[in-house]
Amino acid sequence: MTLMLTLFLLVFVTELINWIGQSVLLEFFYALYLRIFYSSTAARQRKLKSEILLNKKELLQTSAQDQFAKWAKLRRSVDKGLADLEKLNSELSAARTAFSLKFKTALWIMTTGLQFVIGWWYRKAAVFYLPPGWLGPLTWWLAFPFAPAGSVSCGMWQMACRRVIKVGERVAKEVMAPSVEGSAGQVPTEQKTGAGTGKKDE
């Protein structure tokens, strides 16, 4: 029973991740990672961006001919700010690339990789046994490749769980779709009744 539940949960989590999308999860967890480990860098980046925008705005309003000293000072400030911002962007970009690689690797190990390991480790074990003669000569197929005859192997149980979860997902989407379309395409009562009414001639 423990093996059956473990394999089902692994398949369920894997399909749930596929349904949500790795990119969505990556963005969510990277935002947390950034807030925990790079909060000061991100704060400096935001502050630097706002300073550059203010200096650029002031630079555009300053005449290079009439106020050359002020214009040159603002220009140097903008150039220095852009150079510093480029360094911060490179640092955060490198951090994102490293985090993305580690996150995707950990996600694969905890889902698909773990399924492979458990399936190989328990390749000769029976997840559960079928009633005798339940599927006749096809019973051997459910024990494929190494499980005892009359039982369901880990690989077949994973395949069955994946299939059932995908069917359940499709049914859930079909059930939710009409309600969403109905609420989006609903015409207000005033529009329905107001179109056919008119004032009577007095």
Rank of each mutant, 00 (worst) to 15 (best):
V78Q: 11
R46G: 01
F116G: 05
N55Q: 06
L82S: 06
G150M: 07
T105C: 12
Q65M: 09
Y122M: 10
W71V: 02
L53T: 10
L60N: 12
D84W: 04
Q65W: 09
L85I: 12
A160M: 05
L53F: 14
G119S: 13
G119R: 00
R123Q: 13
N55W: 04
G81R: 01
R123L: 04
K70N: 10
K73H: 07
P145N: 05
K87N: 15
L114T: 10
R44N: 10
A69M: 15
R44V: 01
G81F: 05
D79N: 12
L142V: 01
P145K: 06
G133D: 12
R163I: 00
A83L: 15
D66T: 10
L92M: 06
T112F: 09
R46Q: 06
G155W: 00
K80N: 13
K102Q: 06
T105P: 03
S90G: 15
A95N: 15
L135T: 10
T62W: 00
T97W: 07
A98S: 09
P145D: 13
Q115G: 02
G155H: 02
V164H: 13
L107K: 11
D84P: 05
K47R: 11
L101P: 01
Q115E: 09
F68P: 04
M156F: 03
W120N: 06
K70F: 08
W71H: 11
A125P: 01
G133H: 09
M159W: 09
S50I: 07
K47V: 07
A72R: 15
T112Q: 12
R96Y: 12
K104C: 10
K87E: 14
V127T: 06
N89F: 03
I165F: 04
Q115L: 14
M110K: 01
D84C: 03
P137R: 13
A95W: 02
K73N: 07
V164Y: 11
S63N: 15
A160Q: 00
F146R: 13
Q45Y: 06
K102T: 05
V164D: 09
V164F: 12
G133L: 02
W71S: 02
R44W: 05
G81H: 05
V127P: 01
D84G: 02
R46A: 11
F144W: 11
G133W: 06
T139G: 02
Q61S: 11
Y129V: 04
Q115C: 09
K166Y: 04
L88W: 09
A149Q: 14
L92C: 06
S100V: 06
S151G: 09
T105R: 14
T62I: 13
S63M: 12
A126T: 00
F128H: 05
W71L: 05
N89S: 14
W134R: 00
S100K: 05
T62L: 12
I165D: 00
